[in-house]
Structures are given as structure tokens and as C-alpha cells.
Design a protein around this nucleic acid. Sequence first.
RNA 1: GUGAGCGUAGUUCAAUGGUUAGAGCACUGGAUUGUGGUUCCAGGGGUUGGGGGUUCGAGUCCCCUCGCUCACCCCA
Length: 423
Amino acid sequence: MKEKYRAPKGFQDIIPPDSLAWQHIDDCARGTFHRYGYDEIRIPVVEHTEIFSRSIGESTDIVEKEMYTFEDRAGRSLTLRPEGTAPMVRCYIQHGLHTESSPQKYYYSGPMFRYERPQKGRFRQFYQIGAEAFGIDDPYIDAEMMSMIRDFLYCVGLGSLTYEVNSIGCVKCRPDYKKALHDHVYSRIDRYCDDCKRRYETNIMRVLDCKVPGCVEASGDAPLIRDFLCEGCKEHFNSFRDYLGLMGVEHSVNPRIVRGLDYYTRTIFEITTTELGSQNAVVAGGRYDKLVEDLGGPPVPGVGFALGMERLAELISGKMSNKMPVPDLFIICMNEDARKAGVAVAHELRERGLRCETNYTYASLSKQVKRADKAGARYVFVIGTDEVQRGIVKFKRLSDAKEGEIALDDHESMIKIISDNGS
RNA sequence: GUGAGCGUAGUUCAAUGGUUAGAGCACUGGAUUGUGGUUCCAGGGGUUGGGGGUUCGAGUCCCCUCGCUCACCCCA
């Protein structure tokens, strides 16, 4: 290509008609979250680097090699947010939101940034919509959050995705499990792939979802977290599942799903599809009972999730009509005097909610009608010298060529005419 | 970071190593100076991603580089 400038690698433009799917997702999220009592918070795109390194985990890939980190002019280390939960928690603490009536339920949306190699469903700038609920231990709220997500996905037109849940225990019981898993993996370390040997050191639980056949086999009889959960976690998880059943959220337990971020405790969940290549997670989230405290706030538990908008948009792009909105009306003004008369008409009808186009050049009437038709307009108004003198507009319905006249200032009649589809 | 595939017009794609790189769609203008869809005619658009090499001759073959795509890793 000869163009000099492209968007940077992994950054993309969303242009019509693709932007329609995005608007639809936004609308569904707003509507659904609102009905569940979540309010919007708008957080900045940049945070102090420690917000992420302390919450996500120093040894995760995100912190180790994927963050857009830079110094500002005063030497502060800032980072383009790679995810939304940590900034939300920071905001929650900074504004003392725990003093609001409990629980505190918020949602957010916007771009996130990770320096990764782009592929299907994965970008360096990607949009997430997420929600967080603070202050409630009861797994009822975990389940309700999944119910909300289910409603949201139904709204966007994705009724059949795979819902998987798990519990990864708490600070009391997880260490015991990790030790047992370490022992098990160590006892047959030679059967694991190189990546898993690395995971053994850095992120032991990840060996459980390695796809390499040899590893799948080697970890086949590995201990599972559910056998190590303490009484509290066990009860929490069972109750969570009971509520999911009550709410009609169909799901399965996958004892091998793991989350990438360090702050999760107890409940974790993932909603996946098989239609997106290897980037199959559409929604993911879980509970983080220590995160607020770890970031210097009060000991308040939380649950949250995030969904990937590009992935959702890709999934629904084939199912949406993708039809751009068409003008209700195209006003053709033949000359400057006519345009001066048309301005008021356009303004008035737009104020009343009509999508109203006008011509920006004075080509022949034939040409202008052609343009109106190509734009898909349902009606055209024609204003020329004669019409201005007589104080009228001529209208034509393009579907059946029905024509007539209306007084230039009779906006009520215009509305009435245009709302008649003719067929 | 690792690996593979692909780069020709706005877009979808043609062109055995051989004239001046073509077509559909889209866009613009005209046939039609106050009435659309169809049709017909015309036009604008390309350093064949870039650089080097082989050859009498390269869009085509070779090397390098950049970009895109997919996969690994990781993750929404």
C-alpha cells in the first residue's frame, strides 16, 4: 500500500457499519447493568505503575512484558491500563466509596492496552466492559453477577455460550493445594513440556490447562483444588452454584480453569466460544476478597468481571442486520434562497427526531434525487424558486413516487406525511 | 519473544518470466439544464509494500526488510 500512515500495530479503527455492533453492545450493557443496580464510573486510561504491578502480580506476563509504561515529564512511572479492576479498586479507595450504602456496584468501559503480538481476537488496544461489586461476601452476589452477564449476552444475541465456574480457594487453603500440586508435578517433571517446566516455577496452576498432549496426560491425575478447599470456601462455592441453578444460569464446573491475575480468590468464571480461534474467552471474572486491602483500602471483599468487546463484536457481526440507518427525509434546495428557506424546515424536523439530510451542492434536480435515493431516503422535499415564492415544499415518497405539496411552515403536516410509510 | 502463510486500484480478484499491469463492484461526470432505482457511455485512480539480486527482459524467480494474517506464549 502506498499510504504513509496506518494505525499502529494492534490498534484498529472501527468504521461503519461495524460500529453498529459496538453501539448495540454498549446499549445492552448500559440497559442490563442499570437494571441490576450498577452505576457507571469513568476511570482514567493511565495509572501509577504500582497499581498494576502490586495487584495483577509481579511475575505475570502482563506486568513482566506487556505493559505500556512510561515516565511523565516529572519522572513518575505511569502505565496505560492493561485491565480495569485495579483502577476501579484504586478509585474506590481514593474516594472512600466503602462509606456509601452497601453494596457498592459499579461498571466501566473503555480501552485497555497490552503489548502483545496481535492475532484473531487479540489486540494491543482492546475495549472492555466490566463491573465490580464491593462489600458483599455472600456468594449470592457472585451468582447474580453471572445472571446479569447472561441477560446481557442474551440481549446482544448470544444465547448459547459455554459458562464455566470454579473456586480457587482463599489465602488459607490455596497454599496447601499449591504445595500438593508442586509435589505432583515435580514427581513427573520430565514428562512436561518446556513451557510447563517454566510454569512450574512461575505459575504452577497453569500446567492444568496446558494443551500439549503429554502434559494433559501427566497432569491427568493431578490433585484438584476442590479437594483442598477449606470449609468456608467449600460452602461458598456450593452456595454459589445453588444460586446459579435458582437463577437459571446454565453452567458447568471446570476444576482446571485458572485465572491469569493473582488477585482472585474463591469464585472464578469464564464464558467461552469455539468460534474465535484460539482466543476463546469472551467474558471472565471472579472474586477478589483481599485486593482492596492489598491496595491500601479497608478490608472489603469484591467480585467483578470483564468482557472483550472486539470478541463480542466479532461474534455478533454475522448475526446483525448491519444496515446503516437511512434518512427519513432528504431536503433538496435548488439555490441559495431555497436553502435559506430549507434551513428552518431541517432544523424543526430534526428537533422532532427525524433523520434529515440536505444537499450541500446545487447540482441538477435529477442528480439530487438520485443522491437521495442512493442514501436510502424515504422522502424527498424539493424547494426551488417557485416553491419559495408560493411558500410551499413539494414532497415525494420514493417508494411509490406519490407526490404532493405542504406549506413551508406547516411542520405538523410534514411529520404526519413522513411518518406514513405508504406500504 | 518464537513459527508459518500472504502482500497487485478504495475493495474483491486476474495477468505461462515476454507490448503501455487488467476486470467486477465502489466513486465521479455525461446521456437526462425541475424528479430516483434500470440501462448505456466516459473518467479518475497503481512507484505491483520497500530495497537489492538473477535475467536480453521480473508483478512472476532469489535474498533482505517492512506490513498484514494465523498459531505458540499469554489473555478479554
